[in-house]
Nucleic acid binder design. Structure first.
Lengths: 162, 162
DNA sequence: AATGAAATCCCAACGTG
DNA sequence: CACGTTGGGATTTCATT
């Protein structure tokens, strides 16, 4: 499982939430401006941000990149079914997906299938080659289904450049 | 479809890619340090970042937040099927998903289903209420299937706090 | 929690290959 | 046209009250 928080588990109050709401739109917003928006001093804002970073509430600060500009033109959602759900099998699959840069997201889910992935590649050729390597040539994967995205309607995700 | 790039379409060279690779891990990395890593001057790095921002290559700069800290404990992948694929119907669905904060991601896809959503809510009660409102009580949605996430194996996404 | 000082970083101007 | 160097201005960061 993924670890929720590093530190003691900080209590998030409404000030923290207000700050986070701003930082998730633009984390370069000046602290003065944040302070004014949430009715705190700049120093208080600064302390809270630092605390949330060390507590793991704020995981990372990143630039969101347009995949089409790289260009990474193919976005695909893939449903993966495993042969069995033994711990060793599931862990092996998780490790594989974690270390594959084209796999931008991976969820282990209930409901008939095992994993849902979001994959981004430069073109269909690369996509075809990747799915062959990841799924077709893989023992513990029973089946998979590709859903090619026609539109990334809402996808504010941190694209990893392979 | 969603707009790829605002400006003329900037050509991304290997310097830009190297810079982006750093910024998507940590966009607060000092320009001096980036400069040293990619063998450019700090000013050149600054110019390239500014150019990529105005060209829309860099969409936004955001903090990634741990949903469990908010706490938003339920992550779910939902497959949605529409009654028909007429433009008006599809656009209405897109608009609905765009304006619903709990819908963190939305892809319009091929392959038997219409949309794949990633939804995050505070608990199962909120999730139940949301799916009722979004799907069950909605004319143009034929069916949907919820896949509850047991593990966010890889999910470096910008969580929107509802 | 607020204030002020010090360090750091960002940004514009200029000059050069 | 893009890069590098330099200097001014702003912001973050830290120490003190």
């Amino acid at each position: 499982m993924s670890k929720p928080v590093d530190n003691p588990a900080r209590k998030i109050d409404s000030f923290d939430r207000a700050i986070l709401r701003i930082l998730q739109k633009d984390n370069k917003t000046p602290q003065r401006q944040i302070a004014e928006a949430v009715n705190l001093s700049a120093a208080a804002v600064q302390r809270r941000i630092a605390a949330m970073e060390s507590a793991g509430v704020i995981l990372r600060n990143v630039a969101l990149i347009d995949p089409y500009a790289i260009p990474l033109t193919i976005t695909s959602v893939v449903e993966v079914r495993l042969h069995d759900e033994r711990v060793a099998t599931v862990d092996a699959a998780k490790a594989l997906f974690r270390e594959t840069p084209e796999v931008q997201q991976c969820y282990y889910v209930t409901g008939g299938i095992s994993f849902v992935l979001v994959i981004v590649t430069s073109d269909v050729r690369a996509y075809e080659a990747l799915t062959r390597r990841l799924f077709a040539e893989n023992d513990y994967i029973e089946s998979y289904r590709s859903l090619i995205a026609l539109d990334r309607v809402k996808a504010d995700t941190s694209i990893i450049i392979p």
